[in-house]
Design a protein around this nucleic acid. Sequence first.
DNA 1: TCTGATAAAAATGTATACAGGCGACAGCAT
DNA 2: ATGCTGTCGCCTGTATACATTTTTATCAGA
Lengths: 239, 239
Amino acid sequence: MSQSLKTILSLRELILGGELKSGERLSELSIVDRLGVSRTPVRMALVRLEEEGLLEAIPSGGYAVRHFSEADIFDAIETRGTLEGLAARLAAERGPSPGQIGEIKGCLRKLDVLVQHEAGADTFSAYVELNERFHQLLIHMAGSRVVARQIERAVALPFASPSAFVEVQAVLPESRAILLVAQEQHRSVVEAIERREGARAEALMREHSRVAHRNLVMALGHQNARDLVPGMALIRQSA
Amino acid sequence: MSQSLKTILSLRELILGGELKSGERLSELSIVDRLGVSRTPVRMALVRLEEEGLLEAIPSGGYAVRHFSEADIFDAIETRGTLEGLAARLAAERGPSPGQIGEIKGCLRKLDVLVQHEAGADTFSAYVELNERFHQLLIHMAGSRVVARQIERAVALPFASPSAFVEVQAVLPESRAILLVAQEQHRSVVEAIERREGARAEALMREHSRVAHRNLVMALGHQNARDLVPGMALIRQSA
DNA sequence: TCTGATAAAAATGTATACAGGCGACAGCAT
DNA sequence: ATGCTGTCGCCTGTATACATTTTTATCAGA
């Protein structure tokens, strides 16, 4: 593994874990001391994490840990939903190959099995994996590098990911119900795409992203749930 | 001006001007020889231009000039339209301040004057400037840092910008008509936002982006028009 | 005590030296 | 003649030294 990649991963973990407080200026040398790599890979990592949205450039030079308001997270989720809606519409309009449809239907079936059974400890991690896979397949069906890239950037923010709040669901009583609704949306989107119903596919995918929004509100409510969301330490009252 | 910024600007110009052919691998040292700066700012510029979408990382290391298909440009425009549609909807739903409404209406009036009069040489550059300003104001009215940032990234691709094909319009006979239609869309979007009609504002902004799509087709048709579009040298038949 | 300037300390921006890896080319063997 | 292999060279990744700017702390004066 390259030093740059190692630095990126370490820094991201430190930021999301809340060990680097938001608003705090990150000096390159302090990171050098902390991680034991030279300044060059540190600088690389800082640039990439700024593009990723976790850091913000200070006008006079250097970087600071970015902080987010609840509204920012709401908007990030809405943005992802809008872009995934675009992907779903394009997939429907362009008509994916039978192979792609078969693949995503297979993914649906596996998700069905998980959702039907009662939730266990490792069931959720399997669900996260399959859920991510479903979203990946859907993006792939749109058949556009440009759209895929844009979505990649949108989900780079930790709480914008389709699976950001799944861990939270695990501790909530409504979790089964939410999962069932989400899975129904998955199924409906695939159906819409298969029938070339672009507008329906788009609307469904947008609405699907809003389960994350509901989960956000719940996560902010229950203090014990906050710790389960990656990057929750970055949230401040002020924008 | 910092060396890094100078390198970014120079490299971008070289790429968009077609002096660096698409697919060509960029060796750091060759750029050092060409621009007279050291490797460090060159590396910085390469990373940033990759994030911007002009370069792509080669798996074995280094960067190559990216190339785009007509479909890529279509999708980039569609993506921008979708995100600007989101911004318009949010602006409508959230209700911008009277000051913001007044500001964008002032912009509208100035555009009206330009569009009414016959097109001159510098009229178009003034139009480009006001058009950019209109889109900026609209994004600002959405009141979301996250959405604004995402749109910034979407318009970073040279031909995805709202003004990418305005230069082309100048040499086409239909230019006046297109400008009138676009201006009508501008006006309608502002009206929709003012009336809190989110769905209408969104739909209008999406459709508005599609004038760029039509211009793209025309630009690809007329060979003499191709040279007026920045970054047209990056377009290849194969994806 | 507060304000201002000045100087020191630190941090970033830049240049360059060093090391490891990947690819190309040539030579040898089959 | 063709395929394999070893070596050479270029290129990227990394480390570090140097310069310039920014920040901070201290001290003098009002």
